[in-house]
Design a protein around this nucleic acid. Structure first.
Ligand SMILES: [Zn+2]
Ligand SMILES: [Zn+2]
Ligand SMILES: [Zn+2]
Ligand SMILES: [Zn+2]
Lengths: 161, 161
DNA sequence: GCCCAGATGTTATAACATATCAATAGCACT
DNA sequence: AGTGCTATTGATATGTTATAACATCTGGGC
């Protein structure tokens, strides 16, 4: 059953299972513990396939008896973000499962202001103008936040012709 | 009396006055009202020359009898951001006066995680890889957030040698 | 003077995030 | 099995950021 993701359709069940399997693998290799709450949190983010607030995630978890207090959600999100399984969208104060799980990358996001869907892409800002500016200023870049807000294909005004 | 700004020294009093004059001019031309609270808020952001939280700004304002409730600060900041006189740093949930006031630009920021100083530079992410990705996805970019976190020159570990 | 739009004053609350400390579970070592 | 260490979880409280909602005021066009 295809479903919209990153503005494109795909076999979503398959995509969730693949990502979970990769996460299991990565944790086994890295000695990380993908505990029930963490694994279920990742599964929820993958299933929603959009940016969820920490309290949105918490609502899902608490409905399943996996914890009812904010720290439960924030701890799980912190783990997932550290492990590279999820990203925080700063412009939304929300979290989304990584779309390139297992691949080393510098994420960038396209965020629809109308339907809040998010597409993850890749970038290398530290190698472009931003990197030049940092170098000139003597600044050491450790992390970059690149987010574009606008309208996704589905939310474009019909207009024109 | 020079003071650090964007990791470099400069005549700060002069820089504040110039920016305020430009803001006055711009408002006069555009039919915007730079009311006392708004003007003072901009002056405070300019004087601090670093990212201030809305409640930090509110503390300054309330100490001067210019309003004591959150909406006062958020309204002023909203005006300044809309007018292009200030920017929101999404990664900090904080606000900073624009360093290129009056010039049309797409801001990008270098944020020191140690001393919280911020340098504003310029970028054109919509013309690079991000723009390509957006085009391929049929996404219309309206605004971009580009922020780099790391260490400023003053906060680099001495080490080496 | 009247009206309207924008700006302010004020109260309350929503939404996002962390500090702290106690209890527990997994694991290495003996 | 028992000991000690560390990561995780449970639970309560609090801190921080942001907006909703509604009343009031102010300035400029008519
Ligand atoms: Zn997917
Ligand atoms: Zn959309
Ligand atoms: Zn600027
Ligand atoms: Zn610094």
């Amino acid at each position: 059953m295809p479903r919209t993701i990153g503005f494109a359709k795909h076999d979503h069940d398959d995509c969730v299972q693949t990502a979970l399997a990769r996460a299991d693998m990565h944790c086994a290799n890295a000695g990380l513990r993908l505990t029930p709450v963490r694994r279920r949190s990742l599964e929820i983010l993958l299933a929603e396939h959009r940016a969820l607030g920490a309290y949105d995630l918490l609502a899902h978890l608490s409905a399943e008896g996996l914890g009812a207090q904010p720290p439960v959600a924030y701890r799980a999100l912190d783990f997932l973000v550290r492990a590279g399984f999820a990203h925080k969208i700063e412009a939304l104060n929300a979290y989304i499962a990584c779309a390139h799980l297992g691949v080393n990358h510098t994420p960038a996001f396209l965020i629809c202001r109308s339907c809040r869907s998010v597409a993850e892409t890749d970038t290398a800002p530290a190698q472009g103008r931003l990197g030049d500016a940092a170098k000139a200023a003597g600044f050491t870049i450790e992390r970059t936040v690149v987010e574009a807000e606008g309208l996704c294909p589905a939310c474009q005004p019909e207009s024109a012709s």
